[in-house]
Amino acid sequence: MPGSMSKLGGLAVGLLAPARSGALSNQIRGVVHRSVLRLPSDHPEPWDYKHKGFNYIDGLKDDTQKHLHQNSKLIVIEGNIGSGKTTLAKQLADQLGFVHLPEFRMDDILIDRYGNDLRNYYSKFPARYRLPDISMFYKNPSGELSAAMQDRIFNCRFDQYLNALAHILNTGQGVVLERTPHSDFVFANAMRDKNYIGHEYFKHYYFVRKNALPQLHFWPHLVVYLNTPTSKCLENIKRRGNTDEIATVDERYLKTIEESYKDSLREYRNHSKILAYDWTKPGDTDAVVEVN
């Protein structure tokens, strides 16, 4: 990983939520609207980790804990496909003064920083070496590359989660993140239920998950779950107008995700505060802010 990850090994015990089995199991509440956040005059400037990295000498000069304050939190927005996560995540980040990290999409790795799209060169190498995007999955969900896509998505969610933690530890600024590697299995379950992925890969997925998640160490401070009926999710998906998505993401697929989220929330509950909202009709972001 790049230098932005290096501060994860430092003293990060202030406001992030460690596992319950650790010595520090009590989380601290008190997230406030950005307009009322008051920091001391000697509060350090955010460490420019993206350009400077963070090594042993830097650690002597810059104390991680001094950057942390009551809004140094990781908030995760969870919900089914088409539930309205992105809209709430953007609004919540804006009101709290947090960074918003959208849900990982394959375009994030298929298009490089110069704008080159890897898919434009797919004709030059065999299909099994291609990285499918979600559009390719919707066109051929039972194809042999569906497992490769799900595997890559899990790995990239893992990296994105580390980036969220690194941002908080280096700058003190909170992060609103859409979905995490902890909840990624809800999609693996749905894909297996529809036979889009095979049993052997399904077993492999859970083996990798079991070994990977303990390496994250920190859980979200808060998980906001949008409980949106599958009928409403289908309505929102149809409104997007992608015929391939509509054909693949049917009610059965969404129901499996919905049922799997019950297991995900039980797992989260051991480590994080959970707020669940009936999102049949999108609610008021202000209400979510006030509860925190």
Results as ranks from 00 to 15, higher is better:
P2I: 01
S4G: 13
L8M: 07
G9V: 06
V13R: 08
L15K: 14
A17Y: 01
A23R: 13
I28M: 13
V32W: 06
H33L: 03
S35L: 14
V36C: 06
E45N: 14
W47Q: 05
K50Y: 11
F54H: 03
D58I: 02
D58L: 07
H69V: 05
Q70M: 07
S72C: 09
V76P: 01
E78F: 02
G79A: 10
N80H: 04
S83G: 11
L88S: 04
G97H: 02
F98P: 04
R105S: 15
D107P: 01
I111D: 05
D112V: 03
G115K: 00
F125S: 02
L131H: 07
I134G: 04
S135M: 12
K139N: 11
S146F: 09
A148G: 12
M149K: 07
R152T: 15
I153N: 12
F154M: 04
F154R: 05
C156S: 10
Q160R: 05
N163V: 02
A166N: 01
A166Q: 05
H167T: 00
I168K: 06
L169P: 05
G172A: 03
Q173V: 09
V176L: 07
D184H: 11
F185T: 04
V186H: 00
R192V: 02
Y196K: 01
Y201A: 06
Y201G: 07
Y201K: 03
F202C: 02
K203N: 11
K203G: 01
Y205G: 10
F207H: 14
N211Y: 03
L216Q: 00
H217K: 12
H221Q: 14
L222T: 12
K232Y: 08
C233M: 08
K238F: 03
T243K: 15
E245V: 04
T248D: 03
E251R: 11
R252L: 08
Y253V: 06
L254C: 13
E258V: 00
E258Q: 14
K262V: 07
S264T: 12
L265I: 00
L275Q: 12
A276S: 15
A276T: 14
Y277E: 08
D278N: 13
D278F: 04
K281Q: 15
D286K: 14
A287D: 13
V288C: 08
V289E: 10
